[in-house]
Amino acid sequence: MDVFMKGLSKAKEGVVAAAEKTKQGVAEAAGKTKEGVLYVGSKTKEGVVHGVATVAEKTKEQVTNVGGAVVTGVTAVAQKTVEGAGSIAAATGFVKKDQLGKNEEGAPQEGILEDMPVDPDNEAYEMPSEEGYQDYEPEA
Rank of each mutant, 00 (worst) to 15 (best):
A11K: 01
A140H: 12
A124K: 15
Q79G: 07
V77R: 05
Q79N: 10
N65R: 14
V3K: 13
E105Y: 12
K32M: 12
P120E: 05
V77C: 10
Q99F: 11
K6H: 05
K97I: 13
K80D: 01
L38R: 06
E61D: 02
T33I: 05
A11H: 01
G93A: 15
Y133N: 15
V49L: 09
A76F: 06
V3F: 03
A107C: 09
V3H: 05
I88F: 02
Y39L: 09
K58F: 05
L113I: 06
E110F: 08
S87Q: 11
T33H: 01
E137Y: 06
A124M: 05
L38Y: 15
G93H: 08
E126P: 08
T44L: 11
D121A: 13
G31Q: 11
S87R: 11
V63M: 11
G111M: 02
I112L: 05
V55T: 04
L8R: 00
G36F: 06
A78W: 14
N103I: 09
G36C: 07
V48Y: 14
Q99I: 06
K10S: 04
V66L: 09
E123L: 10
V52P: 02
E104C: 05
N65W: 15
V52A: 14
K58N: 07
D135E: 14
G68T: 10
S9G: 13
G41H: 14
S129D: 06
L38V: 05
Y125S: 05
G41C: 12
A124H: 04
A85Y: 14
K60Q: 08
V66P: 01
V26K: 00
A19Q: 01
V74G: 02
Y136G: 04
G25T: 15
A124D: 09
A27Y: 13
V16D: 02
Q24C: 01
G67I: 12
E20R: 13
V82C: 07
G41R: 09
L100I: 13
K97W: 15
V82A: 14
M5S: 05
E35H: 03
G106C: 08
K45W: 13
V49G: 02
M127F: 11
G31E: 03
M116E: 08
T33C: 02
V118P: 06
A53G: 06
P108Q: 10
D121L: 08
V26G: 01
V26S: 01
F94Q: 14
E104R: 04
D119E: 06
